[in-house]
Design a protein around this nucleic acid. Structure first.
Length: 878
RNA sequence: GGGAGUUUAGCUCAGUUGGUUCAGAGCAUCUGCCUUACAAGCAGAGGGUCACUGGUUCGAAUCCAGUAACUCCCACCA
């Protein structure tokens, strides 16, 4: 049969994915006989689409899972999606707006109907896309954070933590996103440098005609919420004013002048206006001085009636108008340009408004302790380890976690308010009613109870993921099912460093709080996929390639390897389509190597004696590479492992081994060599499989017909064996000779087709005798002589052996002489350095013997080499 | 402002406790080849003051100190 000259991925990929799927090869079930190997997927946003970050992330997971599966472990990769409250709700709101429907015109139920409809339509697209990549997830286990039982788990945890006193409700300054109209956690605020202005505003002193104070602020629109002016107590410029009152411009409200250490005398004018409702630090000062709070900004960022002026204006419009008004009133001393960092919402990019509001919090101080210890003690290992520092500083300075969000899409907080203003927390409304009536001796009806409007932060459900995907019921029953007992703790987690705190740390917290055990052993943190210019890939920049289009062009195997070629753990991946091209070329190389072997005609009468060395050599080399690869894997150096395989396949297998055993054109091969070659081929396919699952499975079945149970993805991973180091060394030496011969051919313009005679002058001819067939074939030699040096020939030296090729008139004597002289000079220089070292008494005294011995050997080799070179030079004649 | 990390070839990165000819790999580049598996290829070649300065040592890419540049994290001075 004839196979295509080029590998065509599209013909094989869907076929094999279906084959694996239909034969349930991704499926994992509890099997006490087998060691589990578990990865939980970082659940992507349910309505998201695959981007390059997912590709990298999931390729790594698939490599790990496939290798573990081949190693005979019960590999279980659990897929699923996350409801992503803010992002999804924003998408649904946007979709409704396009239809002309405003969210606020809908009831909660109606809105959620739309949201679910949207989820049913677009949810899970991303998981389908992962299949094109070859992801070997156990799809039967697919979970969604808002599945019924998954939601129950979230509610149970909330109720439990509340009962333990770790969840509380309180008025706090939170980060308010006026566009999303919700609070967001500290971690969801991104500070950006913004060019703004510093406004110098004059406040008159009450009961004084002449005196005034000037404050500097970036937010003039908040002066109506001022409750004090603050100076540093040591600031003599203002000490006489402390205790007096200042008057807010435009609205003429008098506020006290107070003193607090917080104020920096150097900054601005040394006077600070205190606006507790709209600045975190002012709020703290306000608490210290028992100042009132005046909140003048609505949830949507407009001014309210408490502002007295500009009611209903947006905060940024109001800022400009206030500045104008102050100028007209003569109370704006000056404005100057100012650069400051301003918090933005991660999700909507709106400028965050510090806002006081009633929110739910999780007290973090106690609950984080075991999680900190686990990572510090390397019970959980971070790769790369540099993230340990970051992790520690975060965990040591962690603040209470604001877990409520003013959204509808998500898990509604199970707190129920009674007409008397009290509330109870319970799993269901019915339970709440019972508790309420018992507690307060009341006779409330179900209809009297009103559930909290807010939902929980998305991370409050995804932090349960390593447990809930196996046993969502665990959180209410406290009983572990078989799955949970067997698969937990999981092995490796592969995710982005950006969510180390959002997600990873919190899973560890929950793991210890509820299981008393780590959720995973290793955390592999990938880098960020960037474009060639080093920019993050983003939709708005349009610099992200479409992953599915890439797969279509280069094949999934090509894309997978391309992404892994240059992405060590924790390093950003500067993505270049060239990489993927390299991956595709690699697949093609493998494909063609197979075409070669497939095309061989086998003849039992041919002797394979001459291939003996080559076979022994490759076998050793294979195990050497395998040893290296295992070492890389054990350190999570995935791209290094791939590179080792790449070189084994391309250089050692294709360029050396196959060339060594390849029969001459239209000549048959002996059965033994053929058989061994197929075994080697299978051996490299196994190593390649985790990285390139499709082409390897295809060729595996091309080699011979196999039963389902014999599929490559289920075949045993090879075990590294002892290898013959000396043989590898010797082959290396022989390869050097071959390279030198080729080099001379190139430099002298001798065609590779022209046969040559090689003369070797050596004290140890055994190596070359063993490899004689190899030397002859790869050097295209018709004879090899072992004898003294040859005159009128081009010579070269490998180690301390001399080689000569008689190439007649093509020798340029002058050039040869020059080359020899240059070589002699170089070697003499080298010898000088070695001698200097050995003559140094301190060196001989202090250096370990092994080092001294190698120096002595270098000395002897160099001497021998110089002698040989000089003799050659002499033989060249004058 | 506080902390961490990085700096080795044009690019992306290896380089284990200081010691083999240690200055490496892949890609890119250059030269010659369509040599019956593969031009998505083959064969060969060039390319680095290991950021800089000083120190420790018989010996430093490797250890120490300082300097510079870049990156990230945390904080958020109006």
């Amino acid at each position: 049969m004839s196979i295509s000259k080029k590998y065509e991925p599209s013909k094989t990929e869907s076929k094999w994915y279906r084959y694996w799927l239909e034969n349930k090869m991704f499926r994992s079930e509890v099997d006490p006989e087998k060691e589990p190997y578990t990865i939980i997927i970082p659940p992507p946003n349910v309505t998201g689409v695959l981007h390059m970050g997912h590709m990298l992330n999931n390729t790594i997971q698939d490599v790990l899972v496939r290798k573990a599966r081949m190693e005979g472990k019960n590999a279980c990769w659990v897929p699923g999606t996350d409801h992503a409250s803010i992002a999804t709700e924003a998408k649904v709101v946007g979709m409704l707006r396009e239809k002309g429907i405003e969210k606020r015109s809908l009831s909660r139920e109606a809105f959620l109907d739309y949201a679910w409809e949207w989820k049913e339509k677009y949810g899970g697209i991303i998981l389908k896309q992962l299949q094109y990549l070859g992801a070997s997830c156990d799809w039967d286990r697919t979970r969604f954070t808002m599945d019924g039982d998954m939601s129950d788990a979230v509610i149970s945890v909330f109720v439990d933590l509340h009962k333990k006193g770790k969840i509380y409700r309180g008025i706090r300054m939170v980060n308010w996103d006026p566009q999303g109209k919700t609070a967001v956690s500290d971690d969801e605020v991104i500070f950006k440098e913004v060019n703004s202005k510093l406004y110098y505003i004059q406040y008159k002193i009450q009961d004084s005609d002449s005196e005034s104070l000037t404050i500097a602020t970036t937010r003039p629109e908040t002066i109506m919420a001022d409750v004090a002016i603050c100076v540093n107590p040591r600031d003599s410029r203002f000490s006489h004013l402390v205790g007096k009152k200042a008057v807010i411009p435009l609205i003429n409200r008098a506020i006290p002048i107070i003193a607090d250490e917080y104020v920096d005398m150097e900054f601005g004018t040394g006077c600070l206006k205190i606006t507790p409702a709209h600045d975190v630090n002012d709020y703290e000062i306000g608490l210290r001085h028992q100042l009132p709070v005046i909140d003048i900004i609505n949830n949507d960022g407009t001014l309210n009636e408490k502002a007295e002026i500009l009611i209903g204006e947006d905060r940024f419009v109001a800022r400009k108008k206030i500045a104008e008004m102050l100028k007209e009133a003569g109370q704006l001393a000056k404005e100057e340009p100012y650069q400051s960092s301003v918090g933005h919402s991660e999700r909507t990019d709106a400028v965050i408004e510090p806002k006081l509001s009633m929110q739910w919090f999780l007290s973090m101080e106690e609950i984080t302790k075991p999680a900190l210890k686990a990572v510090m003690d390397d019970v959980i290992q971070l790769y790369p380890a540099k993230f340990k520092n970051m992790y520690r500083s975060w965990m040591e300075n962690v603040r209470d976690w604001c877990i409520s969000r003013q959204l509808w899409w998500g898990h509604q907080i199970p707190a129920y308010y009674m007409p008397n203003g009290e509330y109870v927390v319970a799993k269901t409304k019915e339970e709440a009613l019972e508790i309420a009536n018992n507690k307060f001796g009341a006779n409330y009806l179900l209809s009297d109870l009103k559930q909290d409007e807010d939902v929980l932060d998305t991370w409050f459900s995804s932090w349960l993921w390593p447990i809930s995907v196996f046993d969502p019921g665990f959180f209410s029953s406290g009983q572990k099912n078989q799955d949970l007992k067997y698969y937990y703790p999981t092995n490796d987690l592969v995710t982005a460093p950006e969510i180390l705190f959002f997600w990873v740390a919190r899973m560890i917290i929950v793991g210890y709080e509820y299981m008393g055990e780590k959720p995973f052993r290793n955390v592999y943190l990938t880098g960020i996929v960037r474009d060639k210019l080093g920019r993050k890939m983003s939709k708005s920049l349009g610099n992200s390639p479409d992953p599915l289009a890439l797969i279509e062009t280069y094949g999934a195997d090509g894309v997978r390897t391309g992404m892994l070629f240059s992405s060590p753990a924790g390093n950003d991946l500067p993505f270049d389509e060239k990489l993927v091209e390299q991956g595709r070329n690699f697949a093609n190389k493998i494909w063609n190597a197979f075409r070669l072997v497939k095309g061989w005609e086998i003849d039992g009468t041919v002797s394979g004696q001459e291939n003996q060395r080559a076979i022994l050599w490759f076998e050793s080399r294979y195990h050497q590479a395998l040893t290296e690869i295992e070492d890389h894997f054990s350190k999570f150096r995935i791209s290094d492992a791939l590179m080792s395989i790449y070189k084994l396949v391309w250089d050692d297998f294709c360029s050396w081994y196959l060339e060594m055993v390849k029969p001459a054109y239209q000549h048959p091969i002996d059965p033994a060599t053929h058989q061994r070659t197929l075994v080697f081929f299978e051996g490299v396919l196994k190593l390649l499989h985790p990285f390139m699952p499709f082409i390897t499975e295809e060729l595996w079945h091309e080699i011979k017909d196999r039963e389902v149970s014999e599929a490559l993805m289920l075949s045993p991973w090879p075990e590294a064996q002892e290898y013959d180091k000396k043989l590898i060394e010797e082959a290396q030496q022989v390869f050097e000779v071959v390279s030198q011969i080729r080099n001379i051919r190139t430099s002298k313009g001798i065609s590779p087709k022209e046969t040559l005679e090689l003369t070797i002058n050596t004290a140890g001819p055994e190596i070359y005798r063993c490899f004689e067939p190899v030397l002859k074939k790869l050097g295209n030699l018709n004879a090899i002589h072992f004898q003294e040096r040859l005159e009128h020939a081009v010579g070269f030296i490998v180690r301390s052996d001399e080689f000569f090729l008689p190439i007649g008139q093509k020798i340029d004597l002058e050039k040869e002489r020059e080359n020899l002289i240059r070589e002699i000079e170089y070697t003499k220089g080298f010898l000088l350095a070695v001698n200097k070292k050995l003559e140094n008494e301190k060196f001989v005294q202090n250096a370990p013997e092994a080092v001294i011995n190698t120096e002595r050997k270098k000395q002897a080799d160099a001497l021998g080499k110089i002698q040989a070179l000089e003799e050659s030079l002499g033989k060249l004649g004058n």
